[in-house]
């Protein structure tokens, strides 16, 4: 892959989605873009990018940008945030819900492990929620990741990362060499393609947002913008879970770290008034 091709891709990713893509990481670019080129019937990445330069088709541009979004993920990643969510937060929110449903959003859900972990946690805590409804939403920029997530099909490798075997046999069935999540859990989630750097005002308000390990994949100015966009969608008593050790939110007045819970933040009421 040539340097100016790599730079074109990096530029598109930043312009469209605020994504930080290093044009020097040719291997990464090629491994992500080769399947896109193949899928669209091009002989090579170079051919695809020639066509992209001349035709400037939106669909093709997004296919390239989306291919660069896939990050690492696993069920119950880091475990502790999910334990906190299930054992502390859910019951608190249910107790204060005043009959309103609890709304939870996995922003940048990737192939779905995060939102399904939350759905399993909700299911396990259901008896303690006093009949309060829990609505689960998941969004991602990557259309193919969303398709995979919605299928609920995971490889043997994927279901062995972060998922206790008791949860595996409770919630999954084996289909050939893959594992399929039960319809009961899958149907708890509603999906949507969303670009977090654009206008999010139609999504409504949330009690809980999971946006873990996304910010570090964005270019600097977009980190602040995304985190502030998300903060404005939080209910006054809502929380946002970032990745463990993600200190980026402290750079904005929109959020305040919750002491003792690494990666957990609450909206700052003063910021909301100012905004």
């Amino acid at each position: 892959m040539k340097r100016d091709d790599a730079e074109l891709v990096a530029h598109l990713c930043e312009a469209r989605a605020g994504l930080k893509v290093d044009p020097d990481k040719i291997y990464l670019l090629e491994s992500r873009l080769a399947p896109v080129a193949r899928r669209d019937g091009f002989g090579s990445i170079e051919e695809m990018l020639v066509a992209l330069r001349t035709r400037r088709e939106e669909r093709m541009i997004w296919a390239v940008v989306e291919a660069m979004t896939m990050g690492e993920t696993s069920f119950f990643r880091d475990q502790a945030p999910f334990d906190h969510f299930r054992d502390v937060l859910l019951t608190q929110l249910a107790a204060n819900s005043e009959g309103r449903p609890i709304r939870i959003w996995s922003a940048a859900c990737g192939s779905g492990q995060e939102i399904y972990s939350l759905a399993m946690a909700v299911e396990e805590q259901r008896a303690q929620l006093g009949g309060v409804r829990v609505d689960l939403f998941a969004s991602d920029l990557n259309e193919r990741a969303l398709e995979k997530a919605q299928s609920g099909l995971y490889t043997q490798f994927e279901v062995q990362r972060g998922l206790h075997v008791r949860r595996l046999v409770q919630h999954f069935e084996k289909v050939d060499e893959m594992w399929r999540l039960s319809p009961r859990i899958r149907q708890m989630v509603r999906w949507r393609r969303t670009n977090l750097v654009s206008d999010l005002s139609t999504l409504g308000r949330f009690d809980v947002i999971f946006c873990r390990y996304l910010l570090s994949s964005l270019v600097e100015p977009m980190r602040k913008r995304v985190i502030e966009n998300l903060a404005l969608l939080l209910e006054p008593n809502g929380v946002i879970y970032l990745g463990v050790g993600e200190r980026l939110a402290e750079a904005t007045p929109a959020l305040r770290a919750v002491v003792g819970c690494d990666g957990l933040f609450r909206p700052d009421p003063a910021y909301r008034v100012a905004a």
Binding site: S74, F157, Q160, R161, H164, V165, R166, V169
Partner: peptide, 27 residues
């Protein structure tokens, strides 16, 4: 299920790698 009923704590399906073993020993 048979393994769990007999008192197993976790279950690794071969083939495995270091990441899976680490995850399962944590679980």
């Amino acid at each position: 299920n048979e393994a769990l009923a007999c008192g197993a704590d976790e279950f690794i399906m071969k083939p495995f790698d270091g990441e899976i073993v680490a995850s399962k020993f944590f679980q």
